[in-house]
Design a protein around this nucleic acid. Structure first.
Lengths: 245, 245
DNA sequence: ACGTCGATCTCGAAC
DNA sequence: GTTCGAGGTCGACGT
């Protein structure tokens, strides 16, 4: 147990992820109060100060502490006490171990991107595969086209009347930044071509605070759900596109 | 990796809890779909078939599978693939490991009782044991009383003037929903009895957005802290109630 | 900091 | 089975 204490303190101070398997009881007091009698469980402490106590079954931890908790490790009455305290709201989690079966700590490096449904690039592929998602009569001319200083626009196309259309794709709700970026592309294209150029934001939604700006710049918004894009791509892989339309 | 495969299969078949720390990527497809690029994570598989993939930070798992999933462990393209499939709804979680740093399995025995100190029912017991917590002169007549279509009201009583009082208990800050529920009970009782009926929300607090509604419907709010209820119940178990008053 | 809202919500209870 | 509501919800976003 003395070893365990040293191991745990070391892991916590080095901000590693810490796993403890052992016999414990848990007291919680904060927004509510709870008590968990003795039993064998898995304790997880992450480097951001989040804590989970897992029983042998169930998806959810029986007790926990959200990120930001601070820790104290001590012996109390012969038991090893791990205390995780969160302020605002004040909540205290006390975990007492009388036996420790396994100890494990690791320094995890994880920069991997997590994408729900699709990435922005997937949305672009979906809109190219099914231009009606932008609007009826829309025809893509190019994608990822460089526009000098302005950067790369997502899709350039033309509408049913032959006007140029710049499509700016966002996987997340579009904010003012996306509108301004689109405006730069549209402005650059108008100067280069002298033609009428429309600008369309294609995103799951547009933030309320960005709507006045969108209107002021006479740009447009087309709701495109990542889920729909995902289904278009999935269908496109499996069957002919014509079937899907 | 071949060792890892054997270890994992052994743990899964013996229905132990399984922990894998390693470099992985994750694909999920079911109610939604997601992709998680390569990174170092912790995989937990419990004996009831629940799965969690934890990144180095955050309370919640980045990917998971609820209890009841079935497993398959195989090599695919040089990676170790752990597949967890759930039926109803059909959901598939694929976890690919190319490196495994730690493996751990354990047979956890946990019969410990978990008790949440103050549930809504505890608050009801506390208010019945000490009606003054509602207001001086309050006398309970019934609890969990069915009111036809309206459902069950928490406590029905009368005040010092003989008016009927409906008490709606909430363990958490009461919102508009609670006020509307109380209003239904009060209305039903007024129609049934023809008497004056007061409605009281007993909760830790009432949300600001619910206050106008409360006032408009001429209902009342009485702050009752779960903690106080807890102490009333604790005292009630230990000593005579008279001591406490 | 506080309030609102969605979630692969999860979980349990009622019907 | 399904639906409904609670949760120490958590987490993200807007104010």
């Amino acid at each position: 147990m003395e070893e365990a204490k040293v191991f745990i303190q070391h892991a916590l101070s080095r901000r590693k992820i810490l796993l403890v398997v052992g016999n414990c009881m848990v007291d919680y007091e904060g927004r509510a109060s709870s008590k968990l009698d003795w039993g064998e469980r898995l304790l997880i402490v992450k480097s951001d100060g989040s804590v989970m106590v897992h029983r042998p079954t169930g998806y959810e931890p029986v007790n926990w502490q959200p990120p930001g908790s601070v820790f104290q490790v001590e012996f109390e009455g012969g038991k090893l006490r791990i205390r995780a305290v969160r302020l605002q709201p004040k909540e205290t989690l006390n975990i007492f171990f009388d036996k420790v079966f396994h100890l494990l700590s690791a320094d995890l490096r994880d920069e991997g991107e997590f994408s729900m449904y699709v990435t922005e690039m997937d949305m672009q592929k979906a809109l190219l595969a099914m231009p009606e998602l932008v609007e009826k009569g829309f025809h893509p001319l190019a994608s990822e086209k460089e526009l000098g200083e302005s950067g790369f626009l997502d899709i350039l196309g033309e509408d049913s009347r032959g006007n140029l259309v710049v499509v700016e794709i966002k996987r997340n709700p579009a904010g003012r930044e996306a509108v301004l970026q689109l405006e730069r592309y549209v402005k650059t294209l108008r100067e280069k071509t002298g033609k009428t150029v429309r600008g369309v934001i294609a995103a799951p939604e547009i933030r309320r605070e960005a709507q006045p700006l969108l209107a002021a710049l006479k740009l447009e918004f087309k709701p495109v759900s990542p889920r729909r894009c995902y289904e278009v791509l999935k269908a496109g892989r499996g069957r002919k596109l014509s079937e899907f339309i």
